[in-house]
Design a protein around this nucleic acid. Structure first.
Length: 827
RNA sequence: GGUCCGGUGGUGAAACUGGUAUACACGAGGGACUUAAAAUCCCUUGCCGCAAGGCGUGUGAGUUCGAUUCUCACCCGGACCACCA
């Protein structure tokens, strides 16, 4: 017999699968039959495929092959998230055009993925940098624009001075650095394009309940969206020159005025019950009112200086230096609407311009941040909530900060009410008096989508000679990304300086007209790719209604946990907008979603060039074969767990495959498999089926290893049994299994075979081992027939010699029988 | 600081809805084959103990006939978020 030569076998079968178009997407598909498996869209980086990529493709492919064998019509495609900063940064460094380096990287990725032997429909491959793809990314932008969901706004944005571009909140790391280049991110006032994802905050939150996603992932998205229930409250502002009497007059009339009015400050609070305890107010330094009241602020110089200081502070500074600084706005005061007291107004950078109204009512007795600020600035602290359980608070004369719930005190008409009821009553009062109202506030911000970069999809917008904005007519799409561009970052969009990009624009649209020079965030490209896979060559629509109806939503999506608050959220947003616009009849894209864990280096550190611990999947394939790589990565541990690479483990899996291969020498047609082997075979099929179905590939393989260990003892195997083993192993090691399948005399590919069925009856053990416990300790085991009755089992247990010894003549108080498991004796 | 996830042999890890803890693999030790090595095959392998037996799933308690699994407190590690009013 030939020895196992994966190089030869794998090449042979990969060619044959391709030639026979075995994994082309089935054209005749019903909603019941279809199964859409989606491995996350990779960014084709110049450093080639990572074993982490291989894990994703292997897992999806194993699932795809299994589903096909169970009769499903499977759609599995791979594409490229091809736009993005690294290619452009590389271009700046080496002067190689991003299109060239990206296409090279894609070729390398494709070759490397194909070596894995994945059953992907390559005729549907897409790249987001191709005009026939980004035409539709631009079309999506126009759809958002038409629906009032895309807008321009000048505001402080995250700016990376190294990449010379704006970043979305999601692209700034936890310690305030650029996700791509690690430069500290600054704040910069710029006019940018935004998508109104906040309009969908409530639906994005509520619909999480519909999804089969990891609970932790749903929770993280929930927290990111950050829904808070509370109230908005208006405070009247008065200047020192005005008398108190006059101010009351303003207070009465200003209640009906809009929040933007110079004479009032609107705040959001989750604790309206503490309104009586609000002894000062704090505005974000960027608050509009500060500039509007410039003339009335007596210490303007000081205030202005503080505002300037804040501007210089980076996000990192604001995160690490958390002492509460701030400046009072002298000459103006606010009126607490509950008790009509005059209170001071401050600006301080601990109040964020981007959340709520950019202003707060400070209640130092019941908010730690306000408390700290009040202590620093010697401000009054009025307790208005009393803890139900009086803590050690009494002894100390020092003021305390209590943020929990309790009973309202010093609060007039809500005195004595518990926090929940006090909030309710205060809300009613605010609404009656027209001072405020209930409000739900979200933490989610609108999505900043414009980038002053070259390597992205141009934003399909024109400006006329007056600077008025005009969306590009749909029939003029795509707006082609030009090639004649200088990559050196200037902070201005490189497209401004492209001759071909701007050529003909005036002729076509009018004198003085020009194109929007910014490009779209690459997350726009990856927010809809799973629609394009359905119908990648369609030039009339992003996908045909038919294809959408047949294949969507995605049945299984595998991707990294790092995308929870970006890609996954954006994709859900896109889908909901499409639903609202009537293009689709579902509003969630990914029904089942799982994360793959990270594959670490042999030294338990994250793989990186710097540590020299990176493993190249192609090297592993060359040395051990793709089947070994696939099976090993699945055998390492649970799919979602982080796990270190272990070359000896790879060898172990290769050894397992060799043992399966060498069973060919032990085929015996005349042999009769003993009952025990039949049982183990059916148990293995059962376990493999359930484990693959639930993505527990590691234990599925372990069970097959057990089977092999048993067969080795038997030393002979019938072709039927061998065939069954080959079928259930084939999703993991498809090449080797095809080869053996052919040797067994089959002409057709085993990918076309049905998944073996197991018999519950044959899988059942006839003999079982009962444990016998005395007071919870194992004292004996009994080999008994599986259909033993309760009485028989109990009698046998009590009669056992070992048990008798332990009972020392005592009578059991209680005997418990657990069917098929144990007898527990209590003395 | 908040939230979440985890802690089982020398290592990666199993254990179904509370029921014989450590399946499977790696590593290690021993043996067979070989002039030798590699490869392969067989045996042993949680700890203490000659044995009977005892102890063992981060620590301490609790519930239970019985806890890796449930409850509470604590310790350690990791991930995410981080002044969100």
């Amino acid at each position: 017999m030939k020895s196992y030569d994966p190089k030869k076998i794998e090449k042979k079968w990969q060619k044959r699968w391709e030639k026979e178009k075995l994994f082309a997407t089935p054209s005749e598909t019903t909603r019941e039959d279809k199964y859409y498996i989606l491995p996350q869209l990779p960014y084709p980086s110049g450093s080639g495929l990572h074993v982490g990529h291989a894990e994703v493709y292997a897992a999806c492919d194993i699932y795809a092959r299994y589903k096909r064998m169970t009769g499903k019509k499977v759609l599995q495609v791979i594409g490229w998230d091809a736009f993005g900063l690294p290619a452009e940064n590389y271009a700046i460094k080496t002067n190689v055009h991003p299109r060239k380096s990206t296409d090279q990287a894609i070729d390398m990725f494709r070759r490397q993925i194909q070596l894995l032997g994945v059953s992907v429909d390559w005729s549907r491959e897409v790249g987001s940098h191709n005009p026939d793809y980004y035409k539709w990314t631009q079309w999506f932008f126009l759809l958002f624009y038409k629906r009032g969901l895309a807008y321009r706004k000048k505001q402080a944005v995250n700016w990376c001075d190294s990449c010379k571009t704006v970043l979305a909140n999601e692209q700034v790391t936890g310690d305030g650095k650029c996700e791509r280049c690690d430069t500290v991110v600054e704040q910069k006032e710029m006019e940018q394009w935004y998508l109104k994802i906040t309009d969908y905050a409530d639906r994005l939150l509520e619909d999480l309940d519909k999804l089969d996603w990891p609970e932790e992932t749903k929770k993280r998205q929930k927290d990111w969206i950050g829904r808070s229930e509370g109230a908005e409250v208006q405070f009247t502002v008065i200047a020192r020159s005005e008398t108190t009497k006059q101010s009351r007059g303003i207070a009465a009339s200003s209640a009906s005025q809009s929040p933007r009015d110079d004479n009032s400050i609107t705040v959001f609070t989750t604790r309206p019950d503490t309104l009586f305890g609000s002894s000062f107010m704090v505005l974000a330094p960027e608050h509009l009112l500060v500039q509007n009241l410039k003339n009335k602020i007596e210490n303007w110089k000081e205030v202005e200086q503080y505002i300037e200081q804040t501007k210089l502070k980076t996000d990192l500074d604001r995160q690490t230096q958390k002492e509460k600084t701030g400046v009072e706005l002298k000459g103006i005061k606010a009126i607490n609407p509950a008790n009509q007291k005059e209170i001071s107004i401050f600006i301080a950078d601990y109040v964020l311009a981007t959340y709520g109204f950019g202003a707060i009512m400070a209640v130092p007795a019941h908010d730690e941040r306000d408390f700290e600020f009040a202590q620093k600035n010697d401000l009054p602290i009025t307790q208005v909530v009393s803890p139900v359980i009086p803590s050690e608070a009494e002894g100390s004369l020092r003021p305390m900060c209590f943020t929990g719930e309790g009973v309202a005190i010093n609060s007039d008409f809500i005195n004595g009410l518990t926090t929940e009821k006090a909030i309710e009553k205060m809300n009613e009062w605010l609404e009656e008096e027209n001072i405020g109202k209930r409000k739900i506030q979200y933490r989610l911000r609108d999505w900043s989508i414009s980038r002053q970069r070259f390597w992205g999809a141009p934003i399909p917008v024109l400006y006329d000679e007056k600077g008025e904005l005009h969306p590009i007519p749909e029939e003029d799409l795509p707006v082609i990304l030009p090639d004649d561009v200088d990559f050196k970052p200037t902070g201005e969009s490189p497209l401004n300086y492209s001759k071909s990009f701007n050529k003909g624009v005036e002729k076509k649209y009018g004198q003085g007209w020009r194109r929007e020079p910014d490009t779209l965030d690459t997350f726009m490209c990856s927010s809809w790719y799973y629609f394009r896979y359905l119908d990648p060559h369609n030039d009339k629509a992003f996908a045909s209604p038919d294809a959408l109806k047949t294949w969507m939503p995605v049945d299984f999506y595998l991707g990294g946990p790092e995308h929870v608050n970006s890609h996954l959220l954006y994709s859900r947003f896109f889908t909901k907008v499409l639903f609202d616009a009537g293009y689709i009849n579902f509003d969630e894209p990914f029904l089942v979603h799982r994360h793959q864990g990270m594959i670490l280096g042999e030294d338990n550190h994250k793989m990186s060039k710097r540590w020299g611990n990176a493993v190249n999947p192609t090297d592993v394939i060359n040395e051990f074969g793709a089947d070994t790589l696939r099976a090993y990565e699945m055998f390492m541990g649970p799919l979602e767990a982080d796990k270190p690479w272990d070359t000896n483990g790879v060898k172990g899996v290769r050894r397992f495959l060799e043992r399966v291969w060498h069973l060919q020498e032990k085929i015996s047609v005349a042999h009769v498999m003993p009952e025990k082997m039949t049982r183990i075979m059916h148990q293995t099929i059962k376990k493999a089926t359930h484990n693959i179905e639930s993505m527990r590939f590691n234990t599925a393989i372990a069970k097959m290893m057990e089977l092999i260990n048993e067969i080795s003892k038997e030393n002979k195997i019938t072709p039927e049994y061998y065939g069954l083993l080959i079928l259930i192993l084939s999703p993991f090691a498809p090449h080797m299994c095809e080869e053996i399948w052919q040797t067994l005399g089959h002409k057709k590919s085993l990918a076309l075979e049905a998944w073996p069925e197991y018999s519950e009856e044959l899988a059942k053990d006839s003999e079982i081992t009962l444990a016998v416990q005395i007071n919870g300790k194992l004292r004996d085991t009994l080999e008994v027939s599986a259909d033993i009755t309760e009485t028989e089992a109990k009698d046998m247990a009590v009669a056992s010699e070992k048990v008798k010894k332990w009972l020392e003549g005592k009578e059991p108080k209680k005997v418990i029988y657990v069917k098929g498991k144990l007898v527990s004796i209590v003395v």
